[in-house]
Amino acid sequence: MPQRMNPELLRVDELFAEGMSSPVSLMVRSQQVWMLSGISGTGKSRFLKALADLIVHQGSASLQGRSMNSISADKWRRKVMYFSAETAWWSDKVAAHFEQLPAEEVIRRLGLQPSILQSNPDDLSSGEKQRLALLRGLQYQPQVLLLDEVTANLDHQSTLKVEGLLQDYLQDLPQQCAILWISHSPQQIERMMSLGCHLEFNPPSTAAGESK
């Protein structure tokens, strides 16, 4: 696979947080998509949150050779961004969550109407909010996307649209970037695997966290 030749982007070294079955080490190359799967309760979400420095953890991570602790937490999170399965909105208008409003064609591409920016997040479905939350994060052009079941509430068509948008994002971002994606859908893992690797989280009883 050609992307194996791509430069190293993210290195994770013995990262461990409470709730994870075992420490995880891995190396992510630019343009790679890592699909994370495994039965619930093995700490996949905790792993991604630790990687975004959102929870207390041990071990270390570095982005393009710069370690997490050498950068302030807010700057790290802007580059290594966590997208939650449950979205939260702090203002009563969708547009207020954007510093730069997304282009109309991008919104339409995800199967949404541009007028949705004027609505109140409380009035939207969780699937609409998940797609908007994705755009909300992408406006800051993060280099590593940590996706925590972001298509869980979407129908098949919308899921494919989101996957397409993310693949283009990988291609088009001027900086190097990669995706770590928790998914429970075998079809989705199958589709995205053409771009990368698969990390299986195992229950605590067996050895876990193999990196290939």
């Binding site: 975004a52 959102l54 807010d74 700057k75 790290w76 999170r77 802007r78 580059k79 961004m81 966590y82 997208f83 939650s84 449950e86 979205t87 939260a88 909105w89 702090w90 939350a133 909300r136 994060g137 800051y140």
Partner: peptide
């Protein structure tokens, strides 16, 4: 409103 604060932290605020 913990979730709303943490959503912003995750975005790098």
């Amino acid at each position: 409103l913990k979730a709303k604060i943490e959503a912003q932290l995750a975005l790098g605020f």
